[in-house]
């Protein structure tokens, strides 16, 4: 399609300051418009490119919206059964200690069906990176309640809002695993504004670098949106996320260099 608007003389190859990394496969992402998955995929691939470790990286994708992550990331990957990614990554990293190994998991995968695999991989201090996308809902299956769905939040299986008396409480799995001695670095980030994206990328870099020193699990939670599941526009969903998700899932570092970060309320606004 012909681009209808103004082009300046600056638009030439030598002036490119940002373009999509070649480590993302050249195909459209399967995610809904405005979904944070795409940003995190890109940050991960940009980081691998900057570290020049494409040939040394083995990724594990989950079951959920990002089940096809391996189609978009131009690296060797394995698709795990629902929730089992940390078990796969455990064995891969133990048998390939010089490879960079990560799992990429959603909230249902990591914090519901895969809770045991998550907690035990963390507790053993496995030396891989977990990227955890928390949008408080099951996106792929059509907006059902997740372990991280907020109290009162509507989903297709909590149509009148999550009633914690009957449906249980949202699980702050990130805080839970941060208390385990095998976990070295835990942070909670977001990707809906440029400054948040920059911080998340730094966190991904830090987490991958940590694997060189065999210090244990690096765990990055990205609080993200699900505009389809939340039934909002992408921009509205990002605002709703700031107002509702961040107070319950406050952003910031939780554990750095094996030490829990002093508790201060880091309810961040954009």
């Amino acid at each position: 399609m012909e681009e209808p608007f103004v082009k300046t003389e600056i638009r030439k190859d030598e002036n490119i300051v940002y373009k999509r990394t070649d480590l993302l496969v050249d195909r459209p992402l399967s995610y809904c418009p405005g979904c944070g998955h795409g940003v995190v995929h890109r940050l991960l691939m940009e980081t691998l490119e900057e570290m020049d470790i494409q040939d040394k990286t083995i990724g594990v994708s989950p079951v959920g919206c990002s089940v096809l992550a391996y189609d978009f990331m131009n690296i060797d990957m394995l698709g795990a059964a629902h929730g089992r990614a940390p078990a796969l990554a455990t064995a891969i990293k133990r048998l390939w200690p010089d490879r960079f190994v990560f799992t990429y998991q959603g909230d249902g995968d990591l914090a519901a069906i895969g809770t045991a695999e998550t907690i035990h991989a963390c507790n053993r201090g496995e030396n891989f990176t977990i990227i955890f996308i928390n949008n408080g809902i099951y996106g792929m299956t059509g907006g059902q309640m997740a372990p991280t769905t907020l109290p009162g939040m509507r989903s297709s299986t909590s149509p009148y809002g999550r009633d914690v008396q009957t449906m249980g409480h949202p699980l702050k799995i990130t805080e839970l695993i941060s208390n385990l001695p095998g976990v070295h670095y835990v942070t909670r980030q977001a990707v809906h504004t440029p400054s948040h994206v920059r911080k998340t990328k730094k966190a991904i870099r830090k987490a991958l670098e940590q694997q060189k020193e065999s210090k244990g699990i690096a765990f990055i939670e990205v609080v993200s949106n699900c505009n389809s599941g939340w039934k909002m526009t992408p921009v509205q969903s990002n605002k709703w996320m700031e107002e509702n998700m961040f107070p319950f899932y406050p952003l910031g570092d939780i554990k750095v260099d094996g030490k829990l970060v002093e508790k201060k309320e880091v309810t961040e606004k954009a």
Binding site: L78, R84, A87, A91, I92, W96
Partner: peptide, 13 residues
């Protein structure tokens, strides 16, 4: 469950 999925991961490499 974890054992067999560790096998899956390792065998995949």
């Amino acid at each position: 469950t974890a054992s067999i999925n560790m096998l899956y991961g390792a065998a995949g490499t």
